Simulated assay, not measured.
Amino acid sequence: MRKLYIFLSCLLFSCASIQTLTGGEKDLAPPKIIKTSIDSGSTNIASNFFRFTFDENIGTSKVNELLLISPTQQKNPKLEIKGAQALLTLNDTLTPNTTYTVKFNGCIVDVNENNPMLDYSYIFSTGGYLDSASISGYVKDITTNLPCENCNIQLYASKNDSIVIKIKPDYIAKTNEIGYFQFNNLPTRNFKLVALKDGNNNLMLDNNELVSLAKEIYTGKTIPDTISIFPFYHYVDYKPSLLNTKEPGILQIAINKPLTHVAHLYIDDSIKVYQLSPSRDTITYYYQPTQDTLNVLITIDTNQFSFIYINRLSQYIKPIRLITSNFNGLTIIKSNYRIKGIDKGKILLLIDSNVVSATDIY
């Protein structure tokens, strides 16, 4: 009996081996939108608040870098996450009769495996129709001859040559791993197109970033297939300075060396025509003075220099002085201001305290 008990005990213990538990296959599916507060493709939209409901709980990743809204917002939008909902608020005033596109571009991820939602575009219009123009192409890094991944393609409505270093673009898209980009639902019009490898994500060109030559495009036509970008090196060789002029209405800027690049002069954000000295080292701008302070911006090549020009108008206002003299029986009256006209009816001429007629004045 003892031998049988030992045999059964060994048999029972041999069945109690430890097995590793598995959780099934790894979740590779990105979150999906199942409902929106306003249907994509809607028109005549006045609301700046949008709710997106997903099929699972979500989180965010690199929102400031990845979230794309066109036309570009000057004020950063607000994206809040509450469980399986994303709440988007546009802080800019919506432009009338404009088609807007929202691309999450990987900034929405699921909370379990951080799978990003990539290929989704949400579209709405503040007018009665959706714009339908589109452009696409590829971007190549000319230094490596490889596709430029995650490059910005920036569209500007302005025709200013230095626009890429001054303001954010009107529309933006990003390239994928093969350098491909595509814009949809654009207005049919002319744009300036620039490709930019934006290292600091400020949507403007900075030193040592890669950039293409600016190109004029029309969204109703096909653009060249491939755009090349190259390094931009920002050397500040020029050092302009304001000169202290003694006359009102004259602004002068001295430059440390002759200009060999294109220079633009902006006064209070308005571009102005100026005169360049024969030695090409002094800019002179003539204007009608109406205020004491001017905001001055000068761009030389891709360099920007800003000044505040203060020239008090009150220092040029002097009291009127009259000086009299006699010559061959004539009384001559001189003024320190140029005389534009004479109203004889308002002249009182006294000689030895006696009023004398002033008819012979010329």
Rank of each mutant, 00 (worst) to 15 (best):
A16K: 07
S14H: 03
F49L: 12
S61G: 00
L66E: 11
D27T: 12
T43Q: 12
K62M: 13
F13S: 13
D39E: 14
K62G: 10
D55I: 06
P71G: 00
I38D: 08
T53W: 02
F49N: 13
F49P: 01
L67N: 00
L66V: 06
E65L: 05
L28D: 08
F52K: 02
Q19G: 04
V63T: 04
S70G: 07
C15I: 12
I69G: 00
I18S: 15
S37W: 09
A16R: 05
F54P: 00
E56T: 11
P30C: 01
G23I: 04
E56Y: 01
T53V: 13
V63N: 05
V63G: 04
I45Q: 03
I58E: 01
S42K: 10
D39W: 07
S14I: 13
F49Y: 13
E56F: 05
S14Q: 08
S17T: 10
N44P: 06
G59V: 00
F13D: 06
S40N: 02
N64H: 03
F52H: 00
D55V: 00
L68E: 07
N57Y: 06
D55L: 03
N57Q: 12
T43G: 10
L68D: 08
T60E: 09
S17K: 12
P71R: 02
L67S: 05
S37Q: 09
I33W: 04
T20E: 12
S14R: 05
T36D: 00
P31Q: 04
L68S: 11
E25V: 10
E25H: 05
A46M: 13
S40H: 08
I33S: 01
L67T: 04
I69M: 05
S47E: 14
R51D: 11
N64A: 11
K32F: 08
K62H: 08
P30W: 02
P30V: 09
S42R: 08
D55T: 05
E65T: 10
F50H: 03
I34V: 15
K32R: 10
G23F: 11
T36R: 03
E65W: 02
P30Y: 04
I38G: 06
S17Q: 12
S61L: 11
I38Y: 09
L68F: 06
L67E: 01
L68A: 03
I34S: 02
I38E: 10
K62C: 00
L66K: 15
F54Q: 03
S37G: 14
F52P: 01
L21G: 03
F13I: 14
A16P: 00
N57F: 07
L67P: 00
S40T: 13
T36F: 11
L66H: 06
R51P: 01
D39M: 06
S40E: 09
T36C: 07
P30Q: 00
V63Y: 09
I58P: 00
I38A: 11
I58H: 04
S70F: 04
T43H: 03
L68I: 15
T53Q: 13
F52I: 05
S42Y: 10
L21S: 12
A29I: 14
P31E: 09
T53K: 07
L66R: 09
D39H: 07
D39I: 05
F54G: 04
D55G: 07
